[in-house]
Structure formats: structure tokens, C-alpha cells
């Protein structure tokens, strides 16, 4: 940043973003576009909300796969495998002999530890298996059936989402919104270098957000194994439950919007390096900013609705 960027007498000139913003075609169009985006996300998030609120109370459970028929399983018991311990083969053998489960299914249970769930047991069987696993040096405890109408936050047996990670990621996106508005404010005062710097910061923060989301998707889709209450296949993919369908659709479309925003910001950033914008002509920066903030607002709501509630 050089002092040549700064306008000669900033204090005497009313800053453009404080003046009553005149309506320009670009601004009318971008707000209309945002209105259409509001309606688009209403379709997705509204569907999520009514699915979430109207889901029957036995849709998800700690012991059975989502959407399993639980009416006759009220007395079902299971065992939660907290740690496999030294004798993995022994543990697998004990589970297989107690439940008659096949090799692949047992392997999934072991992989999901510390939240591996063995189901299909009655009270006696659960007690015996817990004792047998304890003898083998594994950590295990018996669990009774607990149902809910939706995966509960902070419940690793039904909900695979990491709230800690995503809270940090939320704040990263909020920070990128702040740097974006600082970039707009800088160019409104004619400080071109400062504007480019803040645009770059926004770009980096937005890219970080996307990177974390890609990491999260990778973990969910194939990186980790989850217990049966989350997915019968061990991986959290769109088809395993209505929650998974909603999660991937809503966050996926938001992610696509962020990606589009990052591309737009990259173009704007290059434009700012080439000196395309000035205190009189900064429409592209402002419109990209409005879009970026909108994506941020959607995420704020989405984070609360999908992750926390």
C-alpha cells in the first residue's frame, strides 16, 4: 500500500458508502438476483425444516439404520464398542459368534470404534457380549434402544457432523465477509492497494472455508467409518438417510455458491490489480461483495438449522 493510493483530502469528501446509495441497473439486478436466491434456498431449507420437524419419532436410533422398522424392537439391546483393544481378531470372533453377523459387517463395526455398534441382541446377549469383549481387553458397554426423530447434535451414534470444526469454519466465512466489506470501503475511498489486499484476504478465507468443507465431505463420504445408526454402509453418503440427503443437498448447493463466489472474487481481484476500479467506479467490487455477504448469511442460517438444531 502506498500513500499515493489515498485520496488527497479524505476527511472533506463524504464517503460513498455513507451517501444514500443511488440505484443503478447493476444494483437493482444484483438485489433481484439475491431475491431469487432467497427463494431458491427457501425451497431447500424450507423442505429441510419441515422434514426435520415432521420426521416421526422413531426415524433414527442408536442401534439400527435410519428408517428401519422399530415398532417391534422396543426391547432390543446393543453393545457400543468403545475401543477394540489388543485382540482385534478375538473381538471380531466374539461379535460374530454372538450375533451371527457376516465378516464385512463385523469389520464395519470394528472400524467405527470408538462408536462401533453391535445390534440384534436381547438383554442377556448384550450382557454376555459386553463381558466377553471386556475379557478380550476391548472397551464395550451395553446400550438399550434410544430413538429420535432426527440425528441429535453431539450424538456420535446418530450424527456424524463435527460441530467444533464447523463452528470454526463458520467464523472463517464471517471473517471473509468482514474483509470483503473492508475491501469495498477501501475502494470507495480510492485506496486501491488496500482494496486489493482485502480482496486477497477474502479470497484466501473463502478458499479456506471451501477447503475445510471439502475435507469434511471427504471424511463423511469415505474417510471415516460410522456406526449403524448413521449409515448401514459405514459411510455417510446421500442415500443412507433423509438427513444425509438434506445435508449434502443444502450444504452442497451452498458450497457451489461459495465456489462461484470465489471465482467471481478472483476475477475481481485480478481486475483490482489491473487498476480497473476507483472511488467513482467500483460496481463490480460492490456487487461481488453483496453476493458474498448473502452467501455468508445463508451459511449462518444453514449452520444453525442443519448443525446445531
Amino acid at each position: 500500500m502506498t500513500s499515493a493510493d489515498a485520496p488527497p483530502h479524505p476527511a472533506h469528501r463524504p464517503s460513498a458508502d455513507a451517501a444514500p446509495a443511488p440505484a443503478t441497473p447493476g444494483k437493482v439486478a444484483i438485489w433481484l438476483f439475491l431475491a431469487t436466491e432467497i427463494m431458491f434456498f427457501t425451497g431447500l431449507l424450507g423442505s429441510y425444516i419441515v422434514f426435520r420437524a415432521g420426521s416421526p419419532p422413531t426415524s433414527y436410533s442408536n442401534l439400527y439404520a435410519p428408517a428401519a422398522q422399530l415398532d417391534r424392537l422396543k426391547d432390543a439391546r446393543g453393545v457400543v464398542l468403545g475401543a477394540v483393544g489388543p485382540d482385534a481378531d478375538g473381538v471380531a470372533g466374539a461379535i460374530a459368534s454372538a450375533t451371527g453377523k457376516g465378516e464385512a459387517e463385523v469389520a464395519r463395526i470394528l472400524a467405527a470404534a470408538p462408536h462401533g455398534v453391535v445390534n440384534g441382541l436381547d438383554e442377556k446377549g448384550a450382557g454376555e457380549l459386553t463381558a466377553a469383549l471386556g475379557k478380550l481387553g476391548a472397551k464395550a458397554e451395553a446400550a438399550s434402544l434410544r430413538t429420535s426423530n432426527w440425528p441429535r447434535p453431539y450424538d456420535p451414534l446418530t450424527n456424524p457432523l463435527s460441530i467444533d470444526l464447523t463452528t470454526v469454519n463458520t467464523f472463517i466465512l464471517i471473517c471473509s465477509s468482514a474483509t470483503m466489506v473492508l475491501a469495498v470501503s477501501a475502494i470507495q475511498q480510492g485506496r486501491k492497494g488496500r482494496c486489493s489486499l482485502f480482496l486477497l484476504a477474502t479470497l484466501v478465507l473463502g478458499g479456506t472455508f471451501l477447503g475445510v468443507q471439502v475435507f469434511e465431505y471427504h471424511e463423511l463420504l469415505e474417510g471415516r467409518s460410522y456406526p449403524i445408526g448413521i449409515s448401514p454402509t459405514g459411510h455417510f453418503t446421500p442415500e443412507v438417510s433423509l438427513f444425509a440427503s438434506c445435508f449434502f443437498t443444502v450444504t452442497g448447493f451452498h458450497g457451489l455458491h461459495v465456489a462461484a463466489g470465489v471465482v467471481t472474487l478472483a476475477i475481481v481481484f485480478l481486475g483490482s490489480l489491473l487498476g480497473r476500479f476507483s472511488a467513482q467506479d467500483f460496481g463490480a467490487v460492490e456487487y461481488a461483495g453483496l453476493y458474498w455477504h448473502f452467501v455468508d448469511v445463508v451459511w449462518i442460517l444453514l449452520f444453525t438449522i442443519v448443525y446445531l438444531i
Binding site: 458508502d17 446509495a21 438485489w31 468482514a178 466489506v181 455477504h293 455468508d296
Partner: peptide, 19 residues
């Protein structure tokens, strides 16, 4: 975010007519 970052604070009535 909407009020300060999106400058709704400084916008005129027509923006509210849109959203």
C-alpha cells in the same frame, strides 16, 4: 451481516421492496 456488511443501513427503500 445484512444491515452493516450489505449496507442495508445506507440503502433506500427500493431495496426493501425487492427483498
Amino acid at each position: 451481516v445484512a444491515w452493516y456488511f450489505m449496507h442495508l443501513k445506507y440503502e433506500r427503500f427500493w431495496v426493501f421492496l425487492v427483498i
